[in-house]
Write a protein that binds this DNA or RNA. Sequence first.
DNA 1: AGGAATGCTAACGTTTACGTAAAGGGAACT
DNA 2: AGTTCCCTTTACGTAAACGTTAGCATTCCT
Lengths: 138, 138
Amino acid sequence: MEAVRQVDSAPMFSIGELAREFDITTRTIRYYEDQGLLAPIREGRRRLYRRRDRARLKLILRGKRLGFTLGEIRETFVLYDQAHGESRQLQYYLGVLDEKREQLQQQRRDIDDALAELEQSYARCQELLSRQNTDGAG
Amino acid sequence: MEAVRQVDSAPMFSIGELAREFDITTRTIRYYEDQGLLAPIREGRRRLYRRRDRARLKLILRGKRLGFTLGEIRETFVLYDQAHGESRQLQYYLGVLDEKREQLQQQRRDIDDALAELEQSYARCQELLSRQNTDGAG
DNA sequence: AGGAATGCTAACGTTTACGTAAAGGGAACT
DNA sequence: AGTTCCCTTTACGTAAACGTTAGCATTCCT
């Protein structure tokens, strides 16, 4: 047997499969669960990850690539899950989203700046090299 | 006297001034120096930061906003400072820059994805609210 | 001159995000 | 039956990035 599957044929994953797929350790995945970021179902003692668990893991890893802490990532999950209720909750959620958008846009500006500077360095570097190859050759 | 200045009128900053300007603690700034990221000059025991020290601090903070570690940031500084020499160094530097570009572009994709999802959540949230205001009123 | 503000070093404390054993259960291959 | 995987919990260890406290020197203000 390769992939763990349920009777209803909904795709399920073992912790090892996910670890291999995303190139992280099983320890890391368990730690995320410990921190309230994942909630796989159990088959006996074993963890079974559904599609949505796998999707959340993807979101966690993307968040990490962007420099967010696990705490920040968890908060977005909690908020998202709570955003199906009263008007006050929804209003609050909208505010949080506004802040997040601000932050992401700032990050994009930072990235664009960094990329621009990188290209300048790249060009200067190439110039130096081509000069060395031209007048340094004997 | 407000800003610390040298005889030659080159603008200099105290650690406190920089801390206030960038909304960080002096401890943080000293820590960056400890980690080899900053190298202010001394006037007796006191640190004096030149324009380039301030510029580096800006770069550090931008790097941090993008989720880079202080170690990664230091490496870019070291490489940049060394990139004025032999062909081999320059070649190596170009390779590093290629990797950095890859990474930054990945991050931009992540951000764009995150922003797109955020806008979807935003729209759904607003829809829910407008519905509540419409058929919930009476 | 006396106090407040600023700066210094040294050192211990703290949070985050895991790494790394240790000790064991259960299935499967030989 | 023995070994090999894969999974489990528990728990101690660790690197990074500062926070915090202590004790002391300067400098500014009044």
